[in-house]
Each structure stands twice: as structure tokens, then as C-alpha cells.
């Protein structure tokens, strides 16, 4: 049959191609449509109604949910927290991960392998377990931190990082960085291992210092990897939920509220599904806009 060019054979081959496509793309396409596209369209519809989640949609509300949302001080606070998480992820978490990756990337010293695993461990824990664990560490009566404080300053009142609206965000931020830097470090190590050793060796023969090798050879070659970790980091920061929920649901007094905890609280828990949907649409638009812009601007080089 191979090599035959009769019309029936061509048709058959086309049919075969079609079925192959159907088989390969079909399941993913159906699942993607059902679980992603349809809910997004539904949420967009719900967001135009005042709806408690029960019964039919009757009270058309126009864009009122969105005007309420944009004016809501707690949502603004939540958005600000998301932005702060992005800023600290980019300025603290990623540089830290990169620095550690540069140190432990090659098994040149014995502990490197150990540290590579050790730093990755926090990422292996689930978000909820991490949250519970750190709630214990921060616990003002029994926690690790306060036990240490009491050891050195007996009789002191101790601190309650999760118990104050002003400190809770920073306490949670520490945990976020602690949890995710290992992931980015591992991605960097993978990227670094893809850089041919010969390039560095050649540079050293030409008399380049360690700093020059890193700055002029390693980092430029790692650029695409860094771009991808920035992308993951920002999207992850915009969507963060579990960890914050487990560490006090974004409270006290919305001190660590993020957009998704806001959505859950003021949408689901309060039976304001219409309003909640408008929050979901807002988050979707923000994430989508960012993805599109970022792909266009930064990841373009990769494709060309």
C-alpha cells in the first residue's frame, strides 16, 4: 500500500490522518473544553447577575458586580497583596534560587547533592501541610519560634506573627518564599546542566574570572530558563490560595487576603455566586492579559 498514489489510497490516508488526530487530540480537547472553556464562559455569564448560587438566574445586574468589585477596599487590598507577592518573588525568591543553583549545581563538593535535595523538600510538601506546619511554628503559645524566644528571654510575652493584621502578610510571605524557591532552584540547575562545560572552559582559558564566566556566559545562556521561572512565579503568585487559607484564611482583618481567598470568602461562603463570578472573571482577565503580554514580549525570542 505504501507509495501508492491512487485516489482511494490518498483518501484512505487522509481518513487515517483524521482518525489519528481525533484519537490524539480528541480526549484532551473534550476535557479541556468541558473543564476550562465552558466554566469560563459560564462564570462570565453569572458575573452579570445577582445570584446566590441556587435556582435560576433571574436578577440581571449588568456590570454592577464589577463596579462594586473595583470600588471594594478589601479587593484592592487583596490585589495589592498579590502584587507584593509577585515583587518579592521576583526580587528575593528567584535571585535566592539562582544563587543557590549556581552554588550547588555541579557536584563539585560533597554536600552539593544533599543541599539540592534539601532545598527542594519544601516544594514536595503539599500547600495545606506546609500551612499547618508553619502555623505550629508561629504558634504564640507552643510554637517553635516562641520556644526559642522563651529560651533566651524567659517570661517574655512572645510574638504572634499570624495574630496581627499588620504582620500576618509578612509571616505568610516568608513561608511562600521558603516553599517555592526550591522549585525554581531545581529548574535553574536543570538549565545550568544544559550549558556545555566547554564554553566555560574556553572562557577560563582566555582568562575570565569566575564572576565574568557567570555574568557573561552562564546567565545569558540561562535567560530562557529565567524567563520561564518568572512566568511561573507571577502566575503562581496571582493564583495563590491553599497556603494562605491554611494559615488563617487571609485574616485577621484581611491582613493576608489575596484575590482567590477573597473570591472564596465573599463569593462562595457568602452565597454571592454572581459577585464571586465577577471576581473570577477579573482574576482570569488579569492572568490572561499578563500571559499574552509576557509571551509576546519575552518568550518571542525563543520561537524565532
Amino acid at each position: 500500500m505504501q507509495g501508492s498514489t491512487t485516489p482511494t489510497a490518498q483518501l484512505r490516508r487522509r481518513q487515517a490522518k483524521f482518525f489519528t488526530l481525533l484519537l490524539l487530540i480528541g480526549p484532551a480537547f473534550v476535557v479541556f473544553t468541558l473543564l476550562i472553556i465552558v466554566p469560563v464562559i459560564q462564570a462570565a455569564e453569572y458575573s452579570l447577575f445577582k445570584w446566590n448560587g441556587l435556582g435560576p438566574l433571574t436578577q440581571f445586574n449588568g456590570l454592577r458586580n464589577f463596579t462594586l468589585l473595583l470600588r471594594d477596599l478589601i479587593f484592592q487590598k487583596a490585589l495589592l497583596h498579590n502584587l507584593l507577592i509577585i515583587v518579592f518573588s521576583l526580587l528575593v525568591e528567584l535571585p535566592l534560587a539562582l544563587l543557590l543553583a549556581l552554588i550547588v549545581r555541579r557536584g563539585t563538593f560533597k554536600l552539593a547533592v544533599f543541599f539540592r535535595t534539601f532545598f527542594f523538600l519544601p516544594f514536595v510538601l503539599s500547600e495545606v501541610i506546609t500551612g499547618v506546619l508553619w502555623s505550629y511554628i508561629y504558634n504564640p503559645q507552643y510554637g517553635l519560634i516562641n520556644s526559642i524566644i522563651h529560651l533566651f528571654a524567659p517570661g517574655s510575652t512572645g510574638i504572634a506573627p499570624l495574630g496581627s493584621p499588620t504582620s500576618v502578610f509578612w509571616a505568610v510571605l516568608v513561608v511562600i518564599i521558603w516553599k517555592y524557591f526550591g522549585l525554581h532552584m531545581t529548574i535553574y540547575i536543570a538549565g545550568l546542566q544544559g550549558i556545555p562545560v566547554e564554553l566555560e572552559e574556553a572562557a577560563r582559558i582566555d582568562g575570565a574570572s569566575n564572576g565574568q564566566v557567570t555574568r557573561l556566559i552562564v546567565l545569558p545562556l540561562l535567560a530562557t530558563t529565567i524567563q520561564i521561572t518568572i512566568f511561573f512565579s507571577i502566575i503562581g503568585s496571582l493564583q495563590i490560595f491553599d497556603l494562605i487559607w491554611a494559615m488563617g484564611r487571609g485574616d485577621p482583618v484581611n491582613g493576608a487576603e489575596t484575590m482567590v481567598t477573597y473570591l472564596y470568602k465573599y463569593g462562595f461562603q457568602r452565597f454571592n455566586m454572581g459577585y464571586g463570578s465577577s471576581v473570577a472573571v477579573a482574576i482570569f482577565v488579569i492572568c490572561l492579559a499578563f500571559s499574552v503580554v509576557y509571551q509576546r514580549l519575552l518568550l518571542r525570542g525563543e520561537r524565532e
Binding site: 502555623s135 508561629y138 504558634n139 504564640p140 503559645q141 510575652t157 512572645g158 510574638i159 504572634a160 499570624l162 495574630g163 496581627s164 493584621p165 500576618v168 488563617g248 485574616d251 485577621p252 482583618v253
Partner: peptide, 12 residues
């Protein structure tokens, strides 16, 4: 109230 009561969960 105890130190940090704003963040205390029921079990604690």
C-alpha cells in the same frame, strides 16, 4: 485574651 488571639484557631 491570650497573645495573638486574633489568629488562634478553635482547636488551639
Amino acid at each position: 485574651f491570650q497573645e495573638g488571639f486574633l489568629g488562634t484557631k478553635q482547636a488551639d
